[in-house]
Design a binder for these strands. Structure first.
Lengths: 160, 160
DNA sequence: GTTCCTGCAAAGAGTTTGCATTGTG
DNA sequence: CACAATGCAAACTCTTTGCAGGAAC
């Protein structure tokens, strides 16, 4: 057999979290999890809400925020902010540690992994007698390609 | 003679920026610059506004935001966000490149410099054909000292 | 049946905008 | 004296909260 997909593992993890905490298995929670694990990356609460409504599901903004909190809490979703003042989320299961490279021209988000970063983080923590929990490196950069493939995708982007 | 202080250099840079752009030399702009360069670090717009009012200056919120935009634009102030959804600022002249270590327990912000980080940023940029403009590494960590000196300073802090 | 969770609408925080007034150049 | 910048208040965006109805256990 194939190993379980990230979505399948996420559903099981949510089952478990819900059971452990004595919460309710509501349809909304599983629908939101499904959308996050199979349809969206780097989304915000608003995007997610619109996406769900667009699929014909009736979920309120409040539930979206509540569920994002729940999923963040049990580690199935990661929260970022990228300096523009509002929050982005992404799924966390089945993904290795990565950071983000942002294009200041078109807003494109490129993920990258750098193995050296972990040791920098550890040594900084040690220096100040702190235990690192998580870190985020965001690089803002401009495109050096004259014909950036992403620029056409989102023509209306402007960085604050 | 002594070399000019960061505040003095900042005032001259603002003079120059204002002259170049044909803007007006208003008292508010210089007062705000002075506060930022001699009285505050890691402040937000709200803090800065209250600080100015506290000094007896009559400045509106709108002016604070406008001026922060102006100063950010001409490179005298840096803008961060640290993931809690709201924006922090700090002066940028007379400071070397540094990043931030945040205590998740008390919210204390520790600055640090790591010389290796720059080369990571450069190599990531090169990999994706991007030219890095700036970067921010934020490390969230917990204190390993039983009696953290900062914990007492801000007893009411709780990370979101 | 109890308690949790939802939807709705209203409140809240931080930031931005519109407009009349002030003051710099 | 023109036009930029200010103050004020209202608008706006994203997020949170209070409460009544509905669903899971």
């Amino acid at each position: 057999m194939y190993p379980p997909s990230p979505l399948e593992r996420a559903i099981r993890a949510l089952d478990e979290h819900i059971a452990r905490k004595g919460l309710r298995r509501t349809e909304e929670r599983y629908e939101i999890l499904r959308a996050i694990y199979s349809e969206l990356t780097h989304f915000n609460a608003e995007t997610l809400h619109r996406h769900l409504i667009g699929k014909g599901l009736r979920v309120s903004r409040a539930t979206v925020y509540n569920t994002l909190d729940l999923l963040t809490e049990c580690g199935l979703v990661k929260r970022y902010s990228f300096g523009s003042g509002y929050t982005l989320y992404e799924r966390s299961l089945g993904r290795r540690q990565h950071d983000h490279l942002l294009c200041v021209e078109c807003g494109h988000i490129q993920e990258f992994c750098d193995p050296q970063l972990g040791s920098i983080v550890e040594s900084v923590g040690a220096l100040f007698q702190m235990r690192p929990i998580r870190h985020e490196l965001v690089i803002h950069a401009e495109c050096t390609q004259p014909e950036c493939p992403h620029r056409r995708e989102s023509a209306t982007f402007a960085e604050k």
